[in-house]
Design a protein around this nucleic acid. Structure first.
Length: 459
RNA sequence: GUGAUUGUAGCUCAGUCGGUUAGAGCGCUAGAUUGUGGAUCUAGAGGUCGUGGGUUCGAGCCCCAUCUUUCACCCCA
């Protein structure tokens, strides 16, 4: 007998887990709504052409392609040689969505005539990646995106950062919000004379606290940077201190780079504005910090301005939230000059972080449940009527479906955290009063009419 | 894609140097208790030791392959 299984990197969610997950979803959703974002959904699958080339070479490889079926598959097979390089894209024309940002860009272009810009949307849906699963990495997971599209204002960046602080404050998860700017990174590459090596530089810098300075420099050399460029980079690698101190170093060394100066201007505006809003003071008690982190690279190649990433302080985990500004994502789909900025929470990782650091999940105060014992026979019709009455009064009520032994029925009530068990046998029905047992309490059994009972627990 | 790692009852795991009939706890079913759950006691069901080959008189244990689990790198939520 083959045991059933599920695809790797996917999970079942049992009632207990789902309650906790929903607590996180609801927290995020509440903040999004409160900040004026509107929900949309897009299909689980997109055309492969919509997704390909948007996430870099690595990303393309991780897209779950959907095999063509039937006649189309047969003709594709006969046309493409087995070893042909592009055979994957020839055998597939659809794919599961890889993230929510690119489908959103596609949505904006397709619905541009109905949308009033700036458009603030949020979207909470699963995405799929053909990755090797490991700690904190799944092949199916949820993203919770909020984006503003059609506005260049840096006030959007500020609002998104405030939303991040709200969400993690409400969840009571201390985090560090790391902020950087793509223009700053480009500026650095420019002033050290290796403008086209910007990606290599940021990937190497990203590893600074993992592999150390010497290794980083070795890797830079390996990636083809000149010795003089590496020497010129050192001040940036040694960047330390508070925001103002970092800023002074950057300003001093960025005189020759227009794009670098622009990056400094943007990041300074965001920090200063948040400062005058007392952002740090407001969220300090929740353990939420904001810092400028030059080592933050973020692989997605469509970011052009601010980039941000959030890490939990209590547990070592990948980033649990990320985002940034993309100036021309819709341009690929034919709508020019529309800038967007957004963030994305990774619910699955937030859940893992909360579990591992022993956080309490404030599951919603649930209404008490009521179960009516099933004695079988004629009484059951009356019991169904009682159940109907209870449900109409907004009470979570059910009857046990089988006339099983009482032990079994009460055991069910116990395991399911049902608070009240109602006995309505022939005697009770005859005198119009049911017997109510309150589980997990010393309270004596009560004899009440069903109306009195409803009034008692739901006045 | 690279390198490790795991698999024995529904679940968590023992299983000695390769040796006779593969164990425990939890869970499940039933009873002790005829219309009252949780605690206790008793009994019972439940296994092709991931799968397929091989070595051996003999394999849960050794070898090969394959699938699976988990982890690191890469990348990322």
């Amino acid at each position: 007998m083959a045991k059933p299984s599920i695809p790797k990197g996917t999970r079942d969610f049992s009632p207990g887990e789902l309650k906790k997950r929903n607590y996180i979803f609801n927290t995020i959703k509440e903040v999004y709504e409160r900040f004026g974002y509107q929900q949309i959904e897009t299909p689980s699958m997109e055309l492969l052409s919509t997704l390909m080339g948007k996430y870099g070479e690595e990303g393309d490889r991780l897209i779950f392609k959907i095999l063509k079926r039937g006649e189309k598959l047969n003709s594709a097979l006969s046309l493409s040689g087995d070893l042909e390089k592009n055979s994957e894209t020839k055998l597939s024309e659809e794919a599961l969505r890889y993230d929510l940002t690119v489908p959103f860009a596609r949505y904006v272009v397709m619905h541009q005539n109905e949308i009033t810009f700036p458009f603030k949307r949020y979207q909470i849906q699963p995405v799929w990646r053909a990755d090797r699963p490991q700690k904190g990495r799944y092949r199916e997971f949820y993203q919770c995106d909020a984006d503003v599209i059609g506005s260049n204002s840096l006030l959007n960046e500020i609002e998104l950062i405030q939303m991040i602080a709200e969400v993690f404050g409400n969840l009571r998860v201390p985090v560090c919000i790391k902020l950087n700017n793509r223009k700053l990174l480009e500026g650095i590459a420019e002033v050290i004379g290796e403008r086209d090596k910007m990606i290599d530089i940021t990937i190497a810098i990203d590893k600074l606290d993992k592999i150390g300075l010497d290794q980083v420099n070795a890797e830079l050399l390996e990636r083809g940077l000149s010795a003089s460029a590496i020497a010129a980079l050192q001040p940036f690698l040694h960047l330390k201190g508070n925001f103002a101190e970092k800023m002074n170093v950057l300003k001093a060394s960025m005189q020759q780079s227009e794009i670098g100066k622009k990056g400094i201007e943007e990041i300074e505006f965001i920090f200063n504005q948040l400062d005058s809003l007392d952002f740090s003071k407001m969220h300090a008690s929740a353990g939420i910090e904001l810092e400028l982190d030059l080592s933050l690279a973020r692989g997605l190649n469509y970011y052009t301005g601010a980039i941000l990433e959030v890490k939990a302080k209590e547990v070592e985990f990948g980033s649990i939230c990320g985002g940034g500004r993309y100036d021309d994502l819709t341009g690929i789909f034919g709508l020019k000059n529309v800038s967007g900025v957004g963030i994305s929470f990774g619910v699955d990782r937030i859940y893992d972080v909360m579990e591992q650091s022993g956080k309490s999940f404030e599951t919603a105060k649930e209404k008490p449940r009521v179960m009516i014992v099933n004695f079988g026979g004629e009484e059951m019709t009356m019991c169904q009527k009682y159940t109907h009455q209870l449900r109409n009064a907004g009470i979570r009520a059910e009857y046990y479906p089988d006339a099983s032994k009482l032990k079994k029925q009460l055991d069910y009530a116990d395991k399911n955290e049902i608070k009240y068990v109602i006995f309505a046998g022939s005697e009770e029905i005859a005198n119009g009063r049911v017997k109510v047992k309150t589980m997990n309490s010393d309270q004596a059994e009560q004899h009440l009419s069903i109306e009195e009972f409803i009034h008692q627990i739901h006045p």
